[in-house]
């Protein structure tokens, strides 16, 4: 079949899958974004012993395939079914969407924590001292001085992390979530037309491109107090373990 016909015939499915991919990615990134600032603070300020469990968590999340993490949560929860049923949590773990979202949120929290930690460490000590000198409280200093600057430093790397999460969200299709990848596989198994994979690739690239543009706009806004030639338009490459 002509690639165009495939698109005309199956576009509602692909659109549905695209929306699911965006939903999974944004929700996962958002949940992680809400938790990571607190964890990053612990990573910066707490005593080494208090940090140990957190470091173990981050190392585990970065050292194991996200697919294995997904299976551990989705299939692994079955082993504790009686227990989960007793606590009324079974209906949560039975749904592949919830398990995928939980996995992605947990995974992204680890990465975002490390990125934000780098951002907080990048805030010049003098800014914090100045804030204390004019009598700001600790919480006030964090909210008004440390975090705004830390987020500006971490912004490009956070954007890379969201893109990585978007790519990883394709794994949800393995546990039968109908995201873009899942819909694509479904269409392929019906039509045996290879071009649907190429359409999926185009859509993924399109999502990435739009996201990168939006992220730049925010970065520009976050950096509007800095002379334009100092802002790097290119996202800083994230080092990932």
């Amino acid at each position: 079949m002509n690639p165009m016909d495939i698109l005309l015939q199956y576009w509602p499915r692909l659109l549905d899958g695209t929306l699911m991919t965006i939903k999974l990615t944004l929700m996962g990134a958002l949940i992680a974004g809400l938790i990571s600032p607190f964890l990053a603070l612990i990573r910066v300020q707490a005593s080494p012993i208090a940090q140990a469990p957190l470091r173990l968590y981050v190392s585990f999340m970065r050292g194991t395939p996200i697919m294995a993490q997904l299976f551990l949560i989705f299939y692994g929860s079955g082993q504790f079914r009686p227990f989960l049923q007793e606590w009324g949590l079974w209906s949560f773990f039975r749904d592949p969407f919830n398990c995928a979202l939980l996995t992605f949120a947990l995974n992204s929290t680890a990465y975002q924590t490390e990125i934000l930690r780098g951002g907080i460490l990048g805030v010049p000590r003098g800014e914090v001292e100045a804030a204390m000198a004019i009598g700001m409280s600790r919480a006030h200093t964090l909210r008004r001085v440390v975090f705004p600057h830390a987020y500006r430093i971490a912004w490009p790397a956070l954007g890379n992390e969201v893109i990585l999460l978007m790519k990883a969200s394709a794994l949800a299709s393995i546990v039968t979530v109908f995201d873009l990848m899942g819909r694509t596989r479904q269409v392929f198994s019906r039509s045996f037309d290879f071009s649907v994979y190429l359409w999926a690739a185009l859509i993924y690239l399109g999502i990435t491109a739009i996201f990168v543009l939006l992220w730049w706009q925010v970065e520009k806004r976050l950096s509007r107090h800095i002379a334009p030639h100092q802002t790097s338009r290119k996202p800083v490459k994230e080092t990932q373990a």
Binding site: K167, M181, Y204, L205
Partner: peptide, 10 residues
């Protein structure tokens, strides 16, 4: 920009 799993299937 592509998910690794998509590359693998392609």
């Amino acid at each position: 920009g592509l998910p690794e799993i998509l590359t693998l299937f392609v």
